[in-house]
């Protein structure tokens, strides 16, 4: 066993996902505490040439699991071979792909699993992590049981680590060790359907303006889009709005949608149901706009604006544009 901190680094269309960059930073930080190196387990198209991008953010080495766009789970056998007896922890993004691969590591190598975590640190040579449980009402600290195998598998939410800027290192790139046969590699994409419009990856947005049933229809999202644009952010939604077909499911926030952690979340016409809340409660700042003064979202928002979203949202967009113009930005 070594003190290395491994992390899953997803690539697609030739580029690292934001999660890969964030985890490179987080792994480097934890590796400095453990006295090991940050090691990327890189997969997806572009992974083989990702050494520079990952190195710039703190990775010392990159093990390439494969360089094709195929279902993430099919990289599990290679990830297992690379993680066997290697290091203190494997960080995985708390996304569907990241969870699938993390689960395969847990099941294949009998490893302890943590997360999604809100913070992690190395204490006495052991990875200790903090997790918000019971709808965020309790923070628990957890560590591997005595004698548990390593590495620990740790799910990490987007925006938990802020990518360090300006690093200069290049990660040394190596091929993954031989993986052997596994049924997990047998999943294939049988059909692929592209939507007409491109949708943003909400997990990567730092400002999100989300609309719910109160937005009333597809066209009701137009003022939200303008506000998002003025704030330099993206538009998201509740399940009610996605179910109604007003917005693609890729933009749903919540338990069965994306779990987001932007610096600013603005919810308009969203009541704040528990399943929505678990997807956005770790946003740094939460503004809610709702005409019902007793809406549950008012109990956990930082700023609760009681009023009609169709009046307030456009007025706010205008006000922000005006201030940006006068500050000479």
């Amino acid at each position: 066993m070594s003190n290395d901190i491994l992390f899953l680094a997803e690539f697609s269309a030739g580029k690292p996902a934001r999660s890969a960059i964030e985890l490179a930073t987080g792994a480097a930080d934890l590796a400095a505490q453990s006295g090991g190196s940050a090691v990327a387990l890189a997969y997806g198209s572009g992974a083989a040439s990702g050494g520079a991008a990952l190195g710039a953010h703190g990775a010392a080495r990159a093990v390439v699991l494969g360089d094709e766009d195929r279902p993430a789970i099919t990289y599990a056998p290679a990830a297992v071979a690379a993680a066997r007896d290697a290091g203190l922890a494997v960080l995985a993004p708390a996304t569907p792909n990241g969870r699938d691969l993390a689960a395969a590591l847990v099941g294949s190598l009998d490893l302890p699993a943590f997360g999604p975590v809100r913070a992690a640190r190395v204490v006495d040579g052991v990875l200790e992590s903090e997790q918000a449980t019971l709808q965020g009402s309790v923070i628990t600290t957890a560590r591997p049981a005595d004698g548990a195998p390593t590495p620990s598998v740790v799910l990490v939410l987007a925006n938990t680590f802020t990518p360090a800027e300006g690093g200069s290192g290049t990660a040394e790139v190596a091929q993954a060790p031989d993986a052997g046969e596994s049924a997990l590699s047998r999943a294939t994409v049988a059909e692929s359907h592209e939507a007409d419009a491109k949708v943003v990856n909400l997990e990567e947005a730092t400002v999100i303006v989300a609309g719910g049933r109160g937005v009333g229809g597809e066209e009701g999202f137009a003022p939200l889009r303008e506000l998002a644009e003025a704030l330099g952010g993206a538009v998201g939604a509740s399940r009610a709005a996605a179910d109604a077909g007003w917005i693609p499911y890729q933009l749903q926030i919540g338990q069965t949608g994306k779990v987001v952690k932007p610096s600013l979340y603005v919810g308009a016409g969203i009541s704040g149901a528990i399943q929505h809340r678990v997807g956005m409660q770790t946003a740094e700042h939460v503004i809610a706009i709702n005409r019902d003064p007793d809406a549950p979202i008012g109990e956990f928002a930082d700023l609760f604006v009681v009023g009609d979203l169709f009046e307030i949202v456009p007025a706010l967009t205008e006000e922000i544009r005006r201030r940006k113009a006068t500050s000479g930005g």
């Binding site: 302890p112 918000a132 309790v138 923070i139 628990t140 600290t141 957890a142 560590r143």
Partner: peptide
């Protein structure tokens, strides 16, 4: 394989 060592209020 895991153990909770502490709980606290946020």
């Amino acid at each position: 394989l895991t153990t909770v060592t502490d709980t606290r209020a946020p």
